[in-house]
Design a protein around this nucleic acid. Structure first.
Lengths: 351, 351
DNA sequence: TATCCATGTAAAATCGTTTGCATAGACAAC
DNA sequence: GTTGTCTATGCAAACGATTTTACATGGATA
């Protein structure tokens, strides 16, 4: 809403977009009606137009480098070929890797996406959702974002907390993840295993813990209460995992392995162990979750459970496109399979 | 291009976008002409409309929750309030942190952005540029992306390699970065300093090296040829820095500090040193560049030169918006200041 | 020879805005 | 009573496509 002192020449920054030929110009050039040209270029079925004319039109379109104006097209046809992505943060590996998969899949389908990052602020989630819809988004992918209620367009949630009517959730097969982690440790001979529970506000905490408990029971691994610690602080640095390991050590209950809540806390845990001269993995094995980029750079490099983030993005996208196009009945839930990545932080139990 | 067997009822996924009231409906509801309503809601100057009517219109707009259709508006006014971002990769901290700053700044100005990641493929850069323009992008921010020639709309390049007519470059003050790094080491007593040069294809390599040479000379630090190694492999893992340090050690020329090309290679360098039982920082100090997230998680944590990535994003955005709105004469180049982050990988020289 | 259908193309309506110009009425000045 | 200036609003033409409907042909059929 700048000042507007009536200065006519400025036109408030509305500079003409790089000039392209319009349908009308193309039609004129051909001596045909725009409608005919449109019909041919869009391969509209059920129209009788001789091949010769079709060829002529397509040739001219190529020659004049005709690019249909997406805005105009969308306005009329109500298809914008655009979706919106809601994400808490950019600049964070987890989210943007998912976005990478989304982008790959979308562009194949001729779609583009708007991104809005809301830094976990609820009112922003609401507002951005509105804005995205206002810009013609035909669907929304909400990554790690708390949605409150159904919105009017197709939605797919990645790592969504709640189940909301009409929203498809894409999530990790936590059960399988637990199996991979525990059977890896088990096969290395570990029986005395310590566990870290995630913070209550973290979306995966509950599911992951339940799965670990179930699988441990099934495998006959005892979970001693003294060997279970809980993360509490709202941190995204390894500090997260440091104090809880000190807590574990103070309990004096022997253990040979730690199942960390995620890679970040695993890194902190390793530090804590090293600081009391325990060697990883010789004295204690540590396994993480997520397989963040940094996991390959630590000393020792981290054994972890990989979440196929890009694939999750691709799957979420495909699911959303299916919803938009109404091609298949929508699913409530889609699970993806985790993978065990063995690096250096786990090893056979001593002796 | 699906099949199209003439099935009329399907309508190929064109579902009505969440219903909103249109300007026309609003006008009808008020018994006024759409134009009048539009004029009032947009505060168009130079129209005489009594305050009473204005209030009536605004009240009704609020009541009916009128949201103007951005598509239609853009079509008419040729302002889409949209820009495009070209980026090599998503899921990489460097780029997405810049994007984070861009997003913050854009949304303040009422803009949204399309993202396209091209994975360094030249033809995709071209194609995506076209597509973005086709979707009405009013400007483009190219992050670490090689542009070949001027395009028809305002462009700002972040970490751009080349200088291109009309393109504003936002880049780090390399000179200052070199000063920070070297004076930090110097003040800790380091005089025998080894250097890593970046790969020739990396955008910052040359500039960074030239600055280091210049500053070293100015400070009276000798750069011995035996203590200069060059990265060559196209890697983004710490492996990058490992072999070159072995190479340094093999040269038998003593050194007490290493200036790494970036954090990734610094991490590899530290590993290489630790693997021959040299302690960091007690025996050798290592300083990195970039301040990637992982830099705070390594053992020891990395001393490095921070690039204010989010700020770079914000500055690039502001510069682009200025260009779009023609408010200030465009600049060719904008530099931003680096910052020294002292952590644990540097320390005073022994003895 | 009149009727009908298929074919090729054009015209018009529409999507939801913005914007330049027109106009009707009120009032004042001459 | 004419002219002129305001005021408040309306009208209609864009913007650039898609989509529905209409209109000429020309040949085939009855």
């Amino acid at each position: 809403m700048k000042d507007s002192t009536g200065d006519k020449k400025q036109k408030d920054g509305a500079r003409p977009v790089h000039h392209t030929t319009s349908l009308k110009q193309l039609a004129e050039h051909l001596g045909l009606n725009p409608a005919t040209v449109s019909v041919v270029l869009n391969d509209v079925p059920g129209r009788s137009i001789p091949q010769a004319t079709r060829d002529r039109i397509k040739a001219a379109a190529k020659e004049l480098n005709y690019q249909p104006n997406l805005l105009a097209r969308s306005l009329r046809s109500r298809r914008t070929l655009t979706i919106g992505i809601l994400v808490p943060e950019l600049g964070d590996g987890y989210h943007t890797q998912v976005m990478s998969g989304i982008g790959d899949q979308l562009i194949k389908a001729g779609y583009f996406y708007f991104t809005a990052h809301h830094r976990h602020k609820r009112n922003l989630v609401e507002e951005y959702t509105r804005l995205l819809i206002g810009r013609g988004a035909q669907g929304i992918i909400a990554i790690d974002t708390l949605l409150e209620h159904p919105i009017g367009i197709p939605v797919v949630a990645v790592a969504g907390h709640k189940h909301i009517e009409g929203v498809t959730n894409v999530l990790l097969d936590h059960r399988r993840a637990a199996e991979l982690a525990l059977s890896h440790l088990y096969s290395l001979g570990h029986r005395k295993i310590a566990f870290m529970r995630g913070q209550p506000f973290s979306s995966d905490s509950d599911e992951r813990w339940k799965s670990l408990v179930a699988v441990a029971e099934q495998m006959g691994i005892e979970i001693k209460p003294e060997l279970v610690v809980s993360l509490e602080r709202d941190l995204t640095s390894p500090e997260l995992g440091y104090p809880v390991v000190q807590q574990l050590l103070a309990a004096k209950e022997p253990f040979t392995a730690i199942v960390a809540f995620n890679d970040i806390s695993a890194i902190g845990a390793i530090r804590a162990l090293q600081d009391v001269n325990l060697k990883v993995p010789e004295d204690v094995s540590v396994i993480g979750f997520d397989d963040i980029k940094a996991a390959a750079y630590t000393l020792p490099r981290l054994t972890t459970i990989n979440q196929p983030l890009e694939e999750i993005g691709r799957i979420a996208t495909q699911s959303l496109l299916n919803k938009i196009h109404n091609t298949v009945p929508p699913q409530d839930e889609i699970t993806v399979e985790p993978e065990l990545i063995v690096r250096e932080s786990t090893g056979p139990v001593k002796g």
